[in-house]
Amino acid sequence: MAKKQIKPYITIDSEYFIPEKTSDVFMEVEFEYQVKKWQGALPKFLEKQGLDLTDEEFDSLLEENYELLHPDNREAWILESDAKWADKTSATYKVLAALYSGDWECRVCGPVPQVNPQPAARLRDLKKRGYIIGSRRRSCGTCGQKTMHDILVMLPSIEARFEHGNELRKPMSEVLKKRIKSVLGYREVCFNVVRSEVELLVDHKFPSQRWNEPESDNPNDMSVADIIKKFQLLSNQTNMWKSRYCDTCFKTGKRGDYMGLKWYYQGDENWAGQTAFDENGCVGCPGYDLELWKAKFLEAGEKKA
């Protein structure tokens, strides 16, 4: 993957990544210090912590995060973290302590499987407690396999961008996620192809960049009509495509396109909501409801024929 050098001591990937089975968004970064080089990841979107940064906000925090993640701060960060745990014999704490290196740790040969061979539930618990943990498949220099790796990002508690914090995004059970994918036919809407369950992400049609109040509840028995109205299915890659367009639109008021086609079945490229949080301003944009956008596009073409 292409790299971008922001400063002589800061290098970042050109693309974000989404850890498997999550909605979180990270970017791999490389921070060079006098004593060592840290090859880690920084968060852009964290569902459990209510963090939701635009591209510009992410970039503006790079220097600050560089200072916060200096190796000299690691010991104090761990001491502060440990002070929050009354029971250091718990399974969740043991997984946390196994990640105290602050580096990518392999789930096959690293310290995590030594304390818990199936740590997914414990990692979720840690995220709920405010810890920032990125996960990604990487080639392991020790066991030689391409395995899932986890990294504990030793940043302070994050102040949510929204007043309501993570209350804005209501919980969604795995049962409901599976049901949504089934209702929507396991079809990735951008390329109109059926994909496996693990390759699909449940996307809110109305982008969270424009939320200013909590979303409606996501009950397991949500009606089919509400599922179709509220969600669409994307892949990691197409979800990032939409996210970038929505970030840009929120900042500039210019809506995105679909593979270069600047066509909108309602309005034009100028976002036209009554306020910055008006969902009506998204109607007509391909990213808002791509299946409907494509149907309207074909309908318009037929009328001209």
Rank of each mutant, 00 (worst) to 15 (best):
S81P: 03
G165Y: 00
G273M: 02
G256N: 05
C109D: 03
N65K: 01
R187V: 14
D59A: 04
D150K: 03
E28R: 13
N73E: 08
E15F: 06
F17W: 10
V189F: 00
G287I: 05
L53Y: 11
N218L: 04
Y33G: 12
G260H: 09
G185P: 00
L68Y: 01
V194N: 11
D247Q: 00
K254H: 10
K44D: 00
P171C: 12
A86V: 00
K3I: 02
A276N: 03
S157N: 09
P156A: 07
L46F: 06
T142H: 04
E215G: 14
P286G: 11
Y9V: 00
L261R: 14
K128S: 14
F277N: 11
R161K: 01
S235A: 03
S196A: 13
N280S: 09
E159Y: 05
C190I: 10
D59E: 04
G144D: 02
L61F: 13
A305H: 09
E159D: 12
V115W: 11
E20M: 08
G144H: 04
K3A: 13
E75R: 05
R74M: 03
R137Y: 08
L123E: 15
I180M: 05
I132S: 06
F26N: 12
I151Y: 01
Y186T: 01
K37S: 09
Y264P: 08
D226K: 15
L46P: 06
D226H: 06
D52V: 04
Q209N: 14
S135M: 08
E30W: 01
S14A: 15
P117H: 15
D125A: 04
N280E: 10
W241R: 11
E163C: 07
K303P: 01
E188S: 12
K127G: 13
F17P: 05
F277D: 08
E75I: 09
I227A: 13
P286T: 04
E215D: 14
C190V: 13
F26C: 02
K84E: 13
G284R: 06
Q118P: 04
L69P: 07
I151D: 10
L99Q: 07
E105S: 15
G102P: 07
R137F: 03
C282R: 03
M1K: 15
E291W: 02
K88Y: 07
G165I: 01
V29W: 04
F277W: 05
G281D: 01
E159C: 07
E30L: 01
Y258D: 07
V224Y: 07
V175D: 14
R179T: 14
M259F: 12
K7D: 11
N73R: 06
V183L: 11
K242P: 00
I132M: 02
E15D: 15
L200W: 05
Q118A: 15
Y265D: 06
Y131T: 05
V189L: 03
M154N: 09
S14R: 10
S23H: 12
F297C: 12
E159M: 03
F26H: 02
G50P: 05
T54R: 07
L298G: 12
K127F: 02
G130C: 00
K21V: 06
T22N: 11
S90Q: 00
K294L: 08
P111C: 10
G50Q: 00
G301E: 11
